[in-house]
Simulated assay, not measured.
Amino acid sequence: MSAATSGSAETGEGHEAHTPPPTPVPTLNIANFLTLSRLAMVPLFVIALFSGDGTDTMWRSVATALFAIASLTDQIDGWVARRYGLITDFGKIADPIADKALIGAALVGLSLLGELGWWVTALIAVREIGITLLRFWVIRHGVIPASRGGKAKTMTQVAAIVAYLLPLPPQVEPVRWVLMGAAVVLTVVTGIDYVLRALRLRAAGKRATSGP
């Protein structure tokens, strides 16, 4: 038997051996469902926040619980996506958008109730909207995933907002200021980091398309 015949016999009569392509990850999966559920909870949170003129202890507790649950899904959907290989481009884009919608609704609500300075809400909103637009600006070159700094920023924002949402005595006001101050600092620092990453990604994409 010749080498050619032997090779043909090993790989199948006249056919080359090949590995099957990887199964594509479906967009409709449990991780993305959790992300979408976070978006769906935003209007419910807003309704609870403004019920009872925004000062009713029971409704503030409900609003805080809804905000906390919605924020928790951010941790769960990320873990599920990584654990079971359900990471999709849709999830990479929808997840930060859901975070921004929830955080933005809480900040605007607190400012409308006169409990948080509008400058804080404006600064964070400009950063979040700007980063979202930045993601779409470079999306043809690639997706900018959430960084560790971005996750730390989100967690700090969540902790600060929960402190403001809870019907707590005035004595804890300094704690609220410290948490929100840390959130503002992380918001600015990570915003600069995202801009630099987007510029590098766009430059690399242009080099790849233009060729040598």
Rank of each mutant, 00 (worst) to 15 (best):
6 S>P: 00
142 G>T: 08
57 T>Y: 05
202 R>N: 11
164 Y>K: 02
155 M>V: 12
49 L>T: 01
170 P>R: 05
51 S>T: 15
163 A>W: 06
124 I>D: 01
134 L>W: 01
167 P>G: 07
53 D>Q: 11
24 P>G: 09
63 A>N: 01
3 A>Q: 12
78 G>Y: 05
54 G>M: 05
67 F>G: 04
170 P>T: 11
167 P>Q: 07
150 G>S: 04
39 L>M: 15
126 V>A: 15
82 R>T: 05
104 G>S: 10
59 W>R: 02
209 T>D: 10
149 G>A: 08
69 I>H: 05
208 A>V: 08
124 I>W: 01
84 Y>P: 07
197 R>P: 05
28 L>C: 07
24 P>I: 07
80 V>N: 01
149 G>D: 05
128 E>A: 11
148 R>Q: 11
195 V>G: 12
123 L>I: 14
46 V>P: 02
190 T>D: 14
211 G>W: 08
35 T>V: 10
147 S>P: 06
125 A>P: 08
75 Q>M: 13
30 I>S: 13
206 K>N: 10
54 G>I: 04
99 D>L: 09
202 R>A: 15
176 R>A: 07
136 F>T: 07
189 V>Y: 13
189 V>A: 13
17 A>Q: 13
91 G>E: 01
208 A>T: 07
131 I>G: 07
109 G>C: 09
129 I>M: 14
94 A>I: 08
71 S>K: 06
7 G>N: 13
50 F>C: 08
138 V>Q: 08
140 R>N: 14
156 T>R: 02
180 M>K: 02
106 A>C: 13
3 A>N: 08
156 T>Y: 02
26 P>T: 12
143 V>W: 02
87 I>H: 00
160 A>F: 04
105 A>H: 05
104 G>F: 06
116 L>T: 09
137 W>H: 12
156 T>H: 04
73 T>D: 06
52 G>W: 02
49 L>W: 00
41 M>A: 12
67 F>I: 03
65 A>H: 00
207 R>S: 12
42 V>E: 01
121 T>K: 07
101 A>Q: 04
134 L>V: 04
41 M>S: 03
3 A>I: 13
74 D>I: 11
89 D>I: 02
157 Q>E: 13
51 S>V: 03
186 L>K: 07
12 G>I: 10
86 L>V: 04
161 I>D: 03
137 W>D: 09
117 G>I: 09
91 G>Y: 01
113 L>R: 11
16 E>N: 12
121 T>N: 06
152 A>P: 01
88 T>V: 03
121 T>E: 07
113 L>E: 06
198 A>Y: 08
124 I>F: 01
160 A>I: 03
77 D>S: 10
10 E>C: 11
134 L>N: 09
110 L>T: 06
181 G>Y: 03
17 A>D: 11
120 V>N: 06
59 W>N: 04
26 P>Q: 11
48 A>Q: 04
68 A>D: 01
54 G>Q: 06
138 V>Y: 06
33 F>S: 15
147 S>V: 03
